[in-house]
Design a protein around this nucleic acid. Sequence first.
DNA 1: TTGTTATTGAGACTCATTCTCAATTAATAT
DNA 2: ATATTAATTGAGAATGAGTCTCAATAACAA
Lengths: 148, 148
Amino acid sequence: MIDKNKGKKDFTNFLREHGQRLTNERSVVLNRILSCTGHFDPDSLYLQIRQTGLKVSRASVYRTLNLLHKSGFISIVRKTEKGTIYECVYGIKHHDHMHCNECGKVIEFYSEELEKLQEKICEKQGFKGQSHTLEIRGYCAKCKKNMK
Amino acid sequence: MIDKNKGKKDFTNFLREHGQRLTNERSVVLNRILSCTGHFDPDSLYLQIRQTGLKVSRASVYRTLNLLHKSGFISIVRKTEKGTIYECVYGIKHHDHMHCNECGKVIEFYSEELEKLQEKICEKQGFKGQSHTLEIRGYCAKCKKNMK
DNA sequence: TTGTTATTGAGACTCATTCTCAATTAATAT
DNA sequence: ATATTAATTGAGAATGAGTCTCAATAACAA
């Protein structure tokens, strides 16, 4: 389970280092995303927050998401026509995605071997890898079967 | 070198299969992207076309880019705040990208080993991989050195 | 408490992309 | 060729995610 207090502390530290403050609004957004399982988009997040009776403006939601992204609490899964999809990665093991072109299902996976190989490839180029995004598109087991 | 005639033929076939036609406008856009080396964005492409004296509306450029994307002639490199960046991949060997967070440099690379490993990972999930995008972010050799 | 500075919210604004629809053009049938 | 039918185009309006403005407010330091 995610330690929300630690999250709050870590985020506060990040803000401090940048001469910024932990406000109520930021705290509300942080709490919300730390409870998120799975992917989310800014507007749903905004609506969820409103539904709980708390008041944070859309502008602040966007502003806070940018901060959370910079500080590494959340990462961008993909950008679609309808906007950006995020996921919370704080305290969560890194993973990559498979995306079914047919039903839209997203499979998360992790491979130590893959990570190692990427490091090796970076070294060969003199590149210092810091993070990466890998999305494999194709057809999930179910859709593959349905297609004959 | 890319065979533009073959490109035209292949694109026409794709269109036919979807009950669509190869118009002058589409042909102009196709030609332009087949001459593109490197990455490009829709608006620059539009301006380039206008500069050569040819007339294709912005709307048609966007519409054609969508078709070229669906038919696999071009792929999306990344979506930025300023819009989508494409690259022509027709007749070009698949590759992945490293992106320097400091200077913005993009390094293209290809690893057979990486491709194989991904296939293996897909199989394990019963997933049928069709394409993928891998972007490694970090620091290029030069910037790495400058940061000491 | 007070002063200083960051932050907020409402709504205006931006800008990439899509949509509208009358006019045009490609492919096909006559 | 010519008519018929359906796809396509262009100009500009519309859309919509995300950002910006700025006066009012809240957080922090002394």
